[in-house]
Design a protein around this nucleic acid. Structure first.
Lengths: 154, 154
DNA sequence: CTAAGTGCAAAACCTTTGCTCCCAT
DNA sequence: ATGGGAGCAAAGGTTTTGCACTTAG
C-alpha cells in the first residue's frame, strides 16, 4: 500500500465520520488529485474524471475540490486570469517554481536547506512584528522552464 | 517634487515615446495607482477615478491597468475568487502580509534583515538547481490582522 | 487630420448556486 | 428510507473585446 493509498483511506474514514458519502465520482476525483504529482487545473481534473464518468458535471468537480480544500487535503495555487491549480501532495505549504510560458508548476521542497526551517523563522518574525496571526503563505517563483527555453531559443 | 511625481513624469515621457497618449482619464488612473500606498482593487480605482470623471467606463480602467502592467510600472496581487489588487509602489517585488478576513495587503519591505538580500540568494539558488530563468516571485503571508482579531475577539 | 483612447454593451471566463432526481448508507 | 450527492442549467463576478464616437498630438 503506497502513501497516497494510505492517505485516501484515511480521508475516506474522515469523510464517513462526518456523514459524508463516498460516491464513485467523488472517489475518482480524490484519487486523481491526491495521486497526482502535478498541479492540476480544474479542467484537467474534469477531463480525467470524464474518462471514468463521461456524464460527470463540472459542478461536481468544483464541489469536491471545495470539500477537499475545507478539509485541508489540498491547497490552491492562484493565477491571474486563469483557473486555479491544486496541489494534492498533502504536504505543508511550500515554494513553487512556475513557468510563465507553459504554466507548469513544480514543487521546491527539495531545497530544504534554504526553505523549510527558514520559512518558519521568517513567519514567526512576521507574527511578532506585524501582530498578524499568520497561518499560511504562498511563495512562488516565476520564470521560464528549461524546456520552454529550448523551444524558444532563449 | 516628490517621488511619485517624478515617476509619473518619467512614465509620461515613456508613454509619449511609444506613441501613446496622455488622456486626462489615463493620467488620473496613473496618479491614483502610483500615488497610493495601499493595494487597490480595480473597483476602488474605478470609484476614485469616477470622482474626477463620472462618465468613465470600467473598460478604460482595465485597459490602463493592463498597460501599466505591461510597462512594469505596477504589479498584481491575485486572490482566489476575488479581483486582483495592484501595487503601484514601483519597487522591486517584495513580500506581502494579507489579512484573510478584510483582504488588506501590507508591504513587508521593512523587514530587510530577513527579506531583501536573502530572497536574492534564494532566487539565485533556484536558478542554479532548477535551470529555470527566474525573473520574479511572489511571497505572501496570510493571516488575521490585528484589527480583525479585535473585532472578532480572537 | 488621424490614430489612439473612451465609453458602452456584449462576450468570455471561471466558479457558485438552485433544484430535481438518484443512490450510498 | 432519507439525506447527501450528481448533473444540469442558470446566475454571479471579474476581465476582455468590439465598435462607433471623441480627442490628443
Amino acid at each position: 500500500m503506497d502513501n497516497s493509498e494510505q492517505r485516501i483511506n484515511k480521508l475516506i474514514f474522515r469523510l464517513r465520520g462526518n456523514g459524508l458519502r463516498i460516491t464513485p465520482q467523488r472517489l475518482s476525483i480524490i484519487k486523481i488529485i491526491l495521486g497526482n504529482k502535478n498541479h492540476l487545473s480544474v479542467d484537467e481534473i474534469f477531463e480525467k474524471v470524464k474518462r471514468n464518468f463521461p456524464m460527470i458535471g463540472l459542478a461536481t468537480v468544483y464541489k469536491t475540490i471545495s470539500l477537499l480544500k475545507e478539509m485541508g487535503e489540498i491547497s490552491e495555487i492562484n493565477f491571474h486570469n486563469q483557473g486555479a491549480r491544486y496541489d494534492g501532495s498533502g504536504e505543508p505549504p511550500h515554494p513553487h517554481v512556475i513557468c510563465s510560458m507553459c504554466n507548469t508548476v513544480e514543487d521546491l521542497d527539495n531545497l530544504t536547506d534554504i526553505g523549510g526551517t527558514y520559512i518558519d523563522k521568517f513567519t514567526k518574525k512576521i507574527n511578532d512584528r506585524t501582530r498578524y496571526q499568520i497561518n499560511t503563505y504562498r511563495m512562488d517563483f516565476f520564470g521560464i522552464c528549461p524546456k520552454c527555453q529550448i523551444e524558444n531559443n532563449q
